[in-house]
Amino acid sequence: MNKLLKIRTLSENVKEYVFDAPDIARHAKPGQFIILRVDDEGERVPFTICDMDKNIGTITLLIQEVGATTKKLAAKKEGEFIHDMVGPLGNATDLDKYDNIMLIGGGIGSAVIFPQAKHMKSIGKPVDIIVGARTKSLIMYEDEFKANSKNFYIVTDDGSYVEKGFVTTKLKQLLDEGKHYDIVFAVGPMPMMKAVADLTREYGIKTVVSMNSIMVDGTGMCGGCRVTVGGKTKYACVDGPEFDGHEIDFDEAMNRARFYREQEQEHVCRLRGNN
């Protein structure tokens, strides 16, 4: 059982959850994920850790209500418990050796780049960040990103906040203005990560993306999270979740992500009682 210590609503359907999870916080590093179950017969669902406090033993997750599990979680109140959580799983991001780093977050994916930004700032190498969202209300962690970056850029698809455009528009503009990056780390919806990788390929900039694949155990056993990277089958849970964005077969990964969509929607309808 893990206690929900704090819940903060960040935007429509997105909440920040702080969980009591001392065993997980102890070894957790930026880039790693956990798998949780809300109740005893619940599904195992992976979420990337977006912050951790080793001293008080907490981890923070940013979760958007999309399916049955996330809806059940959204119904929980502070002080209540979820059934279980396992982690930290996957490999940690290691950006320490780079000097000029661009982090890109799209939508809820911006949560995933936060621990990297915080870490790089703490070792004296603050990064540049672009965060993009559909509209103003979906921009999250603005103050946190500002405080933990060298340059922070916001773009919105509809132009409702700061600057109209996609993350790729902004990145291209910066590169064309002469900005130099050793590495781009992009996390967000797969079409966004693909677009970033396509752009950086032209500029010859190493690009790493984080795959939030469908998985069951998260320790290499089921193979459900397999992605094709450079023509080879890799497992997001033990080989990833981060991979070379120029090597990933995004079209295949996007198709795999849709595998259970119909069943998932049917299940959510049943939960809401409108079926």
Partner: peptide, 18 residues
């Protein structure tokens, strides 16, 4: 990697454990 291809591990884990 087409949808509908399972490893037996995944298929059986979804059925048995889950």
């Amino acid at each position: 990697s087409l949808n509908g291809v399972y490893s037996a591990n995944e298929y059986l884990t979804r059925v048995n454990l889950m």
